[in-house]
Amino acid sequence: MPQIAQLAETYSSQIFWLLVFFGFTFFIVGRGMVPRVMETVGQRDQQISDDLAAAQAARDKADAEEEAWRTRENENRAAAQAIVAEAKADAADKSEKKIASAQKRLDKKLAEAEERIATSRAEAMAEVEGVAAEAAQDIVQRLAGVKVTKPSAAKAVKEAMARV
């Protein structure tokens, strides 16, 4: 078979060109392109690690600022509560003073009213006693026909009023 006989003659030339092609490919790809790709991968890895470090630093800074803000907010809240408590105390003191002042005015008016009532009562009692004495004089005169003096009728009314 002639095809098999040609195999030895063409085999060596095919191996030669195979080695030339793979050698050429090795130097172009292996020595030219792979280092560039590896350099790009290294730069990308470095950029990622730098970005992660910057993100962590930003997170730490944000956490510190948040903690400072919370501290300030708590201090402000405590100050506001102190102001509110002071305002409540001031309002309570003012209310207490107003109530005390009003109570004094009411007590004074009550004392004056009680004094007027006592005066009016005394006047009314004196008038009642006077009217009762006159009525007693008229009644005794009509029933008994005896004339009673005004001082003795007043004395009798006073004694009767004292027993009641």
Rank of each mutant, 00 (worst) to 15 (best):
M1N: 11
A153L: 01
G32F: 02
M33N: 10
R116P: 02
W69K: 11
A102M: 05
E112S: 07
Q137D: 00
R31E: 03
A162N: 06
L7F: 04
M125T: 10
G42Q: 08
M38E: 06
E96Y: 11
I15F: 10
I117K: 08
A144H: 13
A62N: 06
G145F: 00
L110E: 02
F21S: 08
R36L: 03
A78E: 05
R70M: 03
K155S: 09
A85E: 12
M1A: 14
K97M: 12
W17D: 14
D107F: 00
D50M: 00
E65I: 01
P2D: 06
T119D: 12
N74V: 12
L143N: 13
Y11H: 14
A111K: 15
I28R: 04
F24W: 03
M33A: 11
E66H: 08
R36P: 02
M125H: 06
E127K: 00
L18Q: 06
R59F: 06
E127T: 10
R36C: 02
W69N: 06
V148N: 00
A68D: 02
D107H: 01
A79D: 15
F16H: 10
Y11F: 08
K104Y: 02
L18Y: 10
K61L: 11
Q43I: 15
G30W: 02
V164S: 09
E75P: 05
G23S: 11
Q46Y: 09
S95K: 13
A144L: 10
K109E: 14
K109Y: 02
D138L: 10
A85W: 07
A122R: 12
E67A: 13
K158W: 04
A79E: 04
A136Y: 02
I28N: 01
E159T: 08
F16K: 11
L18I: 10
